[in-house]
Design a protein around this nucleic acid. Structure first.
Lengths: 215, 215
DNA sequence: GCCTTGGGTGAAAACATGTTCACCACCAGA
DNA sequence: TCTGGTGGTGAACATGTTTTCACCCAAGGC
């Protein structure tokens, strides 16, 4: 699978590796050439062709610095490849749910173990709870909710779910009965809300898998 | 030194950060523009000018992908800006607090932003709350607490702190008065506990910085 | 002698990427 | 009312970077 490298090829590979650690980006052909004493970018390009054939690097055609080390890709954790980034969504009005993943406020690394209940980790996102309606269930305003996006009909009665109501994100228990969605709060100060499916004022985002809070 | 960013500027910064983690190389102006919905490379360039002025990034003129994150430069480990792993400690008796970091049950990746209030991220660990004494404050039995190890005399009155009591880990408000430690619960069903410093039955672990919960 | 492989040179062409210039709109504060 | 900061558009331009093409040399195997 992975052929052995000649001495010269290994020099090239090692330079690329060290360059990526130092600079946090791949070298250009010229940079490689300069380091190895190769005056022609074509000479370098051929060297990379060999490294690619032998399975040590991958190249993205025509891209500047379009070089990746195969080894580091798979590195389980060696360099932080382990935890996927989830987008922390910014405030979104409930009548424009498509905006949810646009312009995320930031990305946070989340250990895959927190997503083990998700059908699809890529459907997961982070959103801030906008009210205290579930504080009796231990969810407080400002908590970061881990939400797996789901359509309402994929939710089961009693699921902890997240909804956009106006511009606010609310965690509630979800119930579906008599053709309406019921959003049940855990807090007696909050009343149960009901919406017809597809109501502009309330968009079901998905199931709540977990939460993060900082003090 | 480091000025605050506007929301829009933060979107740009966060995209760059996440792109570098995913791709192991900085984005081009056009890649940034595409992600943020900016059609002119000049618009992106001006955004980067601001990020540079405010001390978040550095630019290498004329270089392709000539972008570096100031923050990640100083990152202690070569983990490429990846999330550090915190040990999830296993059950430890309060009279053997040194065992706390021995044989951790597992390690979980935790985004550095969850540790921003820590003096020393390496002093942080994860532990499961063993009772419901703080449920009125939103901490429930089984929650994963992010704890920065600290000696009791580094704690301030009113801090949310973690204690080993017997073999159980408890979150409580910490108060020190009249030569005794007071562990105040948020829940009226629990009574306040007091211990002399150094009591074998109660070992202060540190300050609680945050919590993780999965449903 | 002839072919293959590894390892090149040099230059032009094609494409990717950053820079500059002219211009626009909104908003908050002096 | 003016000014400066923020956040852009669009196009031309200059530079960086990779590709392609033609050609070279030495060593080893047949």
């Amino acid at each position: 699978m992975k052929d052995r490298l000649t001495e010269r090829q290994n020099e090239g590979y090692e330079f690329i590796r060290s360059h990526m650690r130092r600079e946090r980006r791949p070298p250009t052909l010229r940079e490689i050439g300069e380091a190895l004493g190769i005056r022609s970018t074509n000479g370098v390009s051929k060297l990379l062709d060999v490294l690619e054939e032998k399975g040590y690097v991958e190249r993205e055609p025509h891209a500047a610095r379009g070089l990746r080390l195969v080894e580091e890709e798979r590195a389980p954790l060696a360099s932080g490849g382990g935890a996927p980034d989830l987008p922390l969504v910014s405030r979104t009005p409930s009548d424009q749910p498509d905006e949810l993943r646009r312009r995320p406020r930031s990305y946070l690394a989340v250990d895959p173990r927190f997503l083990r209940k998700a059908d699809d980790p890529r459907a997961c996102l982070l959103a801030r709870a906008g009210d205290d309606g579930m504080s009796s269930d231990g969810i407080r305003k400002g908590d970061l909710l881990v939400v797996e996006e789901q359509r309402a009909n994929a939710l089961d009665n009693g699921d902890m779910a997240a909804f956009l109501v106006g511009e606010e994100l609310r965690a509630r228990r979800f119930y579906y009965a008599n053709g309406t969605m019921h959003l049940r709060s855990a807090d007696s100060h909050y009343t149960e809300e009901t919406y017809p499916p597809g109501a502009a004022g309330c968009h079901p985002v998905g199931r709540v898998l977990g939460l993060f809070r900082t003090f």
